[in-house]
Design a protein around this nucleic acid. Structure first.
Lengths: 338, 338
DNA sequence: TGGCGCCGCACAAACGATTACGTCAATCGT
DNA sequence: ACGATTGACGTAATCGTTTGTGCGGCGCCA
């Protein structure tokens, strides 16, 4: 039933008998000041015509004129990763509420992809960017900051760039306190990717807290090897290659923890009796698996929402600051048997 | 270093001393016929100027003129779902290779969201849509087909709409043959959501194959309850509420299988000795968990790629047909102990 | 040598919306 | 009673590309 060629402001203007200027004004200030620019009858007539004709503003035309696209680009390491998918859901939800759209894409944590994908987003004239794949050791972000491209980081921090993250140091500390309270003193850490602030700070948080309690975590107990199940399994295999075994394992990601679980099982080690296991992020799986997983709950969805809101504040010229959301310990069967 | 206002074709034209027409033609037919419209010196000069100035065509202006956006919209039930995230990765990868961009968003399988989200994509003037959230019982797709909006389905089929899916009937059949070969005759099915063709056809495939072998699967052995771990756990609890227990469980999704695993464990049932367990999709987790999961491998990534390619064919006016990719059985510890 | 068909370009009109300026009443304050 | 303000619009330029049409000049064939 919709006309093949969509209705334009010009068509509304002709229908109502006013100029296209007036139509534009009324339609745009609809929410704020409906009668600021036209008499109430004119406003009503325009709205009626728009509704009947099924008018939809052409965003390309508007963007061309205003050079604002209401588009934001999002880069994540990988959408398959539950954590990043959830963060993105938060971003997209908050964006949709405000009538703005988002592009997501994977960088696979590969620097050249980060660059090319970012470039395509800029080519699409996004108003700003959200990076979920910041690397601690790459000057990339500094470069694009130098080009005055507005962006915020999420999930991972880097440098002094504005970032909405979870307080990973605190998360590591929570794990440490829990394990220490259980009398575990020899902990191994599946530290994740070395260039990700998440893995690094979660590790640091635990190590610091252990040290404060008088326990040193030796370097050979820390394996840096990725966040997914396969990486977790490999890391655990390395740690449990030969005795003495640790009495606790802290995986900086639930999936890595699940990977490690298989190794413990193969070694005939009981969880939590022989080895306590702690994950991170409180994935739904953590609760559902055979031995439910003690983990840290991080507000991933909220993190995404806040990241988007922060970017929008930035775009509106308001001054913004980094934000660290608070993690929470969730104790389950993998550290305290039932 | 980039100028605050990006370089335009006009600027190139002035630099080189030709008309903006020529610039446009040269830049667009760059790949196909570089010298179709201008002499080789002119072409070289234009390319040089464009490169030096860091020219990037303004897609809004181009879309406004051509009323083609090189944008496609993708609707999925939920990006958190590993399966859909993977399919989307395939879509986005194939799209990126062709210089086209995609919008994804969640519909959460809620009809009103399907409608509003689709509308926002159309408002953004996407050239076409890919639905990963088709419902068998909703006229929605027929409605938008009636509006001549180009789209293809993926993951799930519905009606006669063009769809790129996996052959779920065949998948169910593979599971049936495997279980029958192991002598299992009393199978329970975690059938997933009732309005999703995936769950429905996987179930149907198994039931048909069992019937062909002379075994009837009673209705009470089929629980329709969602695809995630929680849903799988609930369904399994229902099935194992009281004896007699089945000697096999077919979960139409790996995550549901993992949820079911916990229930079996709680009941003190051994896998696979007492109950054989089969999942679907061959999620990386299937291999990593304590008891590795027998499952059906479905080419999710390829499915996404093909869906995008099919949509592009459709947009190019070529005739397209539905496609069913071939699933594959992966036997692991949850059906044959080591 | 007249005519035809390139080649290599340029002109100018869109595409749909936004917005800096006008304009022309009617109203108001003093 | 008269300049100033306000209300309600309209004019026209502009954003950056694409594309149908036009136009000299040159080579070529009959």
């Amino acid at each position: 039933m919709t006309a093949r060629r969509p209705m334009t402001q010009r068509m509304i203007a002709e229908r109502v008998g006013v100029s296209i200027t007036t139509v534009s004004r009324v339609l745009n200030d609809r929410e704020t000041e409906p009668g600021r620019w036209a008499s109430s009858e004119t406003v009503a007539a325009i709205m009626a015509a728009a509704r009947e004709g099924g008018y939809r503003r052409n965003p390309h035309a508007a963007s061309l004129r205003t050079s604002r696209s209401d588009l934001v680009g999002v880069l994540v390491p990988r959408l398959q990763d539950f954590v990043l998918a959830t963060i993105y859901e938060g971003i997209d939800e908050a964006a949709a509420e405000r009538g703005i759209s988002t592009f997501v894409t994977n960088s696979l944590d590969r620097p050249e992809l980060q660059r090319t994908r970012t470039q395509s987003m800029l080519d699409r004239r996004v108003d700003g960017l959200i990076f979920g794949d910041a690397h601690l050791d790459d000057p990339f972000l500094d470069e694009i900051a130098a080009q005055d491209v507005p962006f915020v980081l999420t999930s991972r921090r880097a440098g002094d760039h504005v970032a909405v993250t979870c307080d990973d140091l605190a998360g590591g500390r929570l794990v440490a306190e829990h394990l220490l309270s259980l009398g575990r003193r020899d902990v191994a850490i599946l530290a994740g990717l070395p260039f990700a602030s998440t893995g690094r700070e979660r590790t640091q948080g635990l190590v610091d807290a252990f040290r404060a309690a008088g326990v040193e975590v030796p370097e050979r107990r820390i394996v840096r090897n990725g966040f997914d199940a396969t990486a977790g399994r490999e890391a655990a295999e390395r740690i449990f290659a030969e005795p003495p075994y640790p009495d606790a394992v802290f995986a900086t990601n639930d999936f890595a923890a699940i990977g490690a679980m298989g190794v413990l099982r193969d070694k005939g080690l009981r969880i939590p009796d022989d080895v306590a296991l702690v994950g991170y992020n409180d994935t739904p799986l953590a609760e559902s698996i055979t031995i439910s997983l003690t983990t840290i709950r991080s507000p991933m969805h909220t993190m995404g929402r806040r990241a988007l809101e922060t970017l929008l504040d930035m775009l509106a010229g308001r001054t913004v600051a980094s934000e660290r959301l608070t993690p929470e310990l969730v104790v389950r069967g993998s550290t305290v048997g039932r």
